[in-house]
Simulated scan of single mutants.
Amino acid sequence: MAQPGLRPFLPADAPTLAALFRASVEELAAEDYDEDQREAWISAADDEAAFAARLSGALTIVALVDGELAGFASLKDNQLFDMLYVRPDLSGQGVGSALADAIEKLAGARGVTKLTVEASDSARDFFAARGYVGQSRNTVTVAGQWLGNTTMIKELAAPAAGRTH
C-alpha cells in the first residue's frame, strides 16, 4: 500500500471518525477485551458532539487512503499521545505507523522530549515496537466496565538546532 496522505482534522470528519473509532474498537480489540468492555469503550463516541470536541481540543491528524478516511491520531497537551485508531480493514498496512510517525514529529517540533501514551492491551505491542517503554499497569473504569491499559513513555530525540547557511 502507498503511504497514506495526512492532513489536519476538520470538524466535518467527526461523524466518520466516530464510526471508524467504533469499528476499530469492536474488531481490533476483540482479542483483549470482552464484549461488555468494548461496548463501554465504544460509548465514548455515543455523544458525537463531545467526541468531536475531544478531537478538536487536541492536535488531531487524519490519514487518507484512496481519498477516504483511514485512521486518526491525536496529541493532547503536547505530551500525551491521546488517540490512535485505524479502520479495521487497513490494520497492519502502515496507516497507524504513518500517524504515529507524524504525531512524534509534531511533538518533537514543539520541543517535547518525551511522549506518554495510555496504551490499550491491543496497542501495547505496537507502541513497544516503536520504542515506548511500559511504566505502569492501570485499570480504568469506563461506563461501568474495568479496562486495563499500560502507561508507556518514549524519549524523543532533541530537536535539531537551527541551521545556518
Rank of each mutant, 00 (worst) to 15 (best):
L106E: 14
L90P: 04
E31A: 15
E48C: 13
S122R: 12
L80Y: 14
G57Y: 09
E68Q: 08
V133C: 08
N138M: 07
V140R: 14
G96Q: 01
R22P: 06
G94R: 01
V117E: 06
D77L: 14
L90T: 05
E155R: 06
R54Y: 08
F51W: 13
A49K: 10
F51N: 11
D46C: 02
R87M: 12
V62I: 11
A63E: 01
G131N: 13
T139E: 15
D77E: 15
F127L: 12
E27P: 05
A50D: 14
A18M: 15
P88G: 08
K76F: 15
A73W: 02
S97C: 07
D46Q: 04
Y132Q: 14
T151Q: 02
V112E: 06
A40V: 10
I103S: 03
L99E: 08
D89Y: 02
Q37F: 02
T116P: 08
F126C: 13
D34P: 00
N149K: 02
R54W: 09
G96D: 05
R87Y: 04
A143S: 11
D125G: 04
G94W: 00
A129Q: 08
K76G: 06
R124D: 07
T141R: 11
K76Y: 14
L59I: 15
L75T: 01
I42P: 00
A58C: 14
L99A: 07
S74V: 03
D82K: 03
V142T: 03
M83N: 07
L147W: 04
D121H: 01
Q145M: 05
I153C: 04
V86W: 03
V65K: 00
A18P: 09
A70P: 02
G96P: 03
V95M: 03
A44R: 14
R137F: 04
A73P: 07
L55T: 03
K105T: 12
A52W: 02
I61G: 07
A157I: 09
Q79D: 12
R22V: 15
A45F: 06
